[in-house]
Design a binder for these strands. Structure first.
Lengths: 232, 232
DNA sequence: CGGTATGGAGAGCGGTGCTCTCGCTTGAGA
DNA sequence: TCTCAAGCGAGAGCACCGCTCTCCATACCG
């Protein structure tokens, strides 16, 4: 791609990428706990200490993989959503939901890396939050589009938000979508937790014996969540 | 408690328990990945190889902890639910939901053990499913009680189940609650995934910066889920 | 062209899960 | 009551891990 200026810089970029690729390959086989720097370096034909020129620790490698995973998921979702005509609001929502599931099912270990138990003693650095926000922001974007054309149903007031929750909704709205009625964000958050709750159950084997395969359960929920957030 | 017949058997039972206790203590500090047999044995004043007389491998120890965790969660939920008068159906549901969250928040690492990413290369044995079923069965029990007294609202038919999903619901009903209308079980499953989706987001740090603390968000969802499953 | 930053190789430290062998102790059957 | 197998702890050892340090070749820059 972007030819680095010097040969050294190009080689470094390439090797960094190769390390991540090999690490991802190992991740898919043995999970995050089974990621071994020595095994990665062995596979790449170098000695383990050399790998530390590229990643100062195993955790840094994991961080890089986590950011990559968030971005990969975000990109998949964004691309799927972009394929739908922007006026078909509900279809954009559904396409996003299904893209998330497809991504998760083809990369279960990367999914586990970002939505499963945190790696022991590992603290997510700030760098991850931007990447992690792509999916939520994508879905909020759909709601904003729906709202600006007046197509967004307002949440029914049969169960109004409690004061603290309303305040949190206001703060959230202010920072992320000032044009949306705050309660909509609570609905969106409910939808998000529902989606990732289903995926975690599916991928972590908690659904075995109930709705398995869970394609239709997921699809039905995606529709239900579209109703919940007020999409037409 | 139950004095084992011989001194040896009693000592064995006690040591087994001590090992699990110490392992749980370490789990709470460093997570599942940080569980070290050597550290456990060191803390117990024995040599690491001796520990293998009690648990043939690290994974077996983890399995024991997983089963214990499921049972601990199940028991907490059952006790909280039992405290509510059995006619107050909605309160029984809410008490169960909140007991689950309390348990999870006081033992985040044990929660991660059972509802987080599966341990790499670890396959849950059959022994776990009975323990894992306690919470779902408890909630279904509330719905059955509500149904027998005719207090359970049927799911609205504005979005009827697709054929495959309906068949899965039938199968599920037959195996676990023949007296309930099958669609209710789909709603219950939705509620379950919602609850554990929220908890995973909360405990795994995905909610930081949105609804944090999430007490009210959770409480509101518990109510909403009670509505969803048709509780009065 | 010379000096310096870069990065690979190798040895080594303390840790891990797990195995095996060696004895001591316990307890059940003859 | 004696005997002998089973139970169990200790210790050494294997192959692996993350990580550090030192050494040296090489690619780059002034």
């Amino acid at each position: 791609m972007n030819a680095g200026r010097t040969a050294r810089e190009r080689a470094r970029a390439e090797l960094t990428q190769e390390i991540k690729d090999e690490a991802r390959r190992q991740l898919a086989v043995s999970g995050a706990g089974g990621l071994s720097l020595r095994a990665v370096s062995r596979e790449l034909g170098m000695v383990s200490s050399a790998l530390y020129r590229y990643f100062p620790s195993r955790d840094e490698l994991l961080t890089a993989l986590i950011i990559d995973a968030y971005n990969s998921l975000g990109e998949s979702a964004e691309q799927a959503e972009a394929k739908v005509p922007s006026t078909k609001l509900r279809d954009r929502w559904l396409a996003t939901c299904h893209a998330i599931r497809s991504w998760a099912r083809t990369r279960p270990h990367e999914y586990a890396l970002i939505y499963g138990s945190p790696v022991p003693g590992y603290q997510a650095p700030m760098d991850t939050v931007a990447a992690a926000s792509r999916v939520p922001l994508l879905m909020i974007g759909i709601l904003r589009d729906a709202n600006t054309v007046g197509a967004l149903d307002m949440p029914k007031d049969d169960r109004p938000l409690t004061p603290i929750l309303a305040a949190q909704a206001d703060a959230l709205a202010e920072s992320v979508a000032p044009d949306l009625p705050p309660p909509v964000l609570i609905s969106a958050l409910t939808a998000l937790t529902q989606i990732f709750g289903m995926l975690s159950f599916e991928l972590f084997g908690q659904l075995v014996g109930s709705v398995d395969p869970s394609d239709e359960f997921y699809a039905a929920s995606a529709e239900r969540m579209a109703d919940l957030v007020g999409l037409p």
